[in-house]
Computed example of a mutant assay.
Amino acid sequence: MKNRKPPIVKVMSFNIAHGSGMDGILNLERTAAVIEDSCASIIALQEVDRFFGERSLFLDQVEWLGERLGMFTAYGANIEYEAENPDMPNHQYGNAILSKYPIAYSKNHHMTPVQQWYGNDEQRGVLEAVIEIDDMAISVYNAHLSLKDEELKLSVKEILALTQKSKFPTIVMGDFNAPPFYAPIQEMNCHFTDAFLKMKQGDAYTYPAPHSYSTSDVELKPVTRIDYIFFGPEMEVAQTAAILTDASDHLPIVADLVLARTKQNKPNHKQHSKVKA
């Protein structure tokens, strides 16, 4: 019997700004269309609301996107407020993972905040998921990290400690809020491969998303790269791209990753339910 070819998985990282575009209009269908058109099968989303407030019409964006795209979902709330009405669900804001493949396990990890005299950042987090692909499993980590240097450094150390515990090939994606020359990003590069650097696309800027102002000739263009897809040694990258869209203030990024077939013990966790469109 011939050995089967290693699977190729298209992954995406996308800070969706709770579905609000560069035009200031909330349009989650536009967000979903960008994801759908990318043909990505594993998607890491940041800034996702669940019943958060009027800005997102108190919608459960995770459930809505899962149903709209016909994908398995996992969610990690990094900010949560109790609803004034005890019959209503809590207001949540955090990270989500969508997958065409079954999600066998997920866990949200809050990053340790760093107290600073000029004020504290919002609670940051990394959502971990184990995803089953055919007869294999991979670990996916979705990060939304701090703008503050000391907290960012600590968060990267905590991410590396988490990933070292994984028994499966690992992908780390997300909004790191730091350009490639920052020391914490360099530290990530010591342990993982930056998909865009590997494909010689280090200039694939992701922030801010392009937008033309109707009142002038000024055009806003991406000037920095703060969104990343990192992968471990059991994988290779075949293709990368930053997708031009004004559906958010960040450009989504995608990578085609080739997974080497390795002998694994399958995860023994209860699978997440799949929602169908």
Rank of each mutant, 00 (worst) to 15 (best):
M1A: 11
K2M: 12
K5N: 12
K5V: 03
K5S: 11
P6S: 06
P6H: 10
P7C: 06
V11Q: 00
F14E: 11
I16R: 05
A17T: 06
G19T: 13
E29L: 07
T31W: 05
A32E: 09
I35K: 00
E36Y: 04
A40Q: 08
S41C: 08
I42L: 10
A44S: 15
Q46A: 09
Q46E: 13
V48M: 02
D49E: 09
F52R: 12
S56G: 11
D60S: 04
V62G: 05
E63A: 09
E63L: 13
W64G: 04
W64R: 04
L69E: 04
L69V: 14
G70A: 00
G70P: 13
F72I: 03
A74V: 12
Y75W: 07
Y75H: 03
A77G: 05
E82I: 03
E82M: 05
A83L: 04
M88T: 12
I97M: 03
L98C: 09
S99K: 03
Y101L: 03
P102G: 06
A104Q: 10
A104D: 07
S106R: 05
K107Q: 14
N108Y: 07
P113M: 01
Q116L: 12
Y118D: 15
G119Y: 09
R124I: 10
L127A: 09
A129E: 00
V130G: 00
I131K: 10
I131F: 11
D135G: 01
D135N: 10
I138C: 02
S139W: 11
S139P: 02
Y141Q: 09
L145N: 09
S146W: 01
L147Q: 06
K148P: 04
E150P: 00
E151D: 05
L152I: 13
L152C: 08
S155L: 03
L160A: 03
A161R: 06
A161F: 05
T163Y: 00
P169H: 01
D175Q: 06
N177V: 07
N177C: 12
A178E: 07
A178V: 15
P179N: 13
Y182V: 05
N189W: 00
N189T: 07
F192A: 07
F192S: 08
T193K: 11
T193F: 03
F196L: 05
K198Q: 13
Y205S: 08
S212F: 15
S212C: 06
Y213N: 12
S214H: 08
S214F: 03
D217I: 13
E219K: 13
E219T: 12
R225N: 12
I226W: 11
I226A: 02
D227S: 04
F230M: 10
F230C: 10
G232N: 05
P233T: 08
M235T: 00
M235N: 06
M235V: 00
A238K: 12
Q239E: 13
T240Q: 06
T240G: 01
A241W: 05
A241L: 10
I243R: 06
I243Y: 06
D246E: 15
P252V: 15
P252M: 02
I253T: 01
V254W: 02
L257H: 03
A260E: 14
T262M: 11
K263R: 08
N265V: 15
K266R: 10
P267F: 01
N268P: 00
N268A: 14
H269I: 00
Q271T: 13
K274F: 04
V275R: 14
V275N: 12
V275A: 05
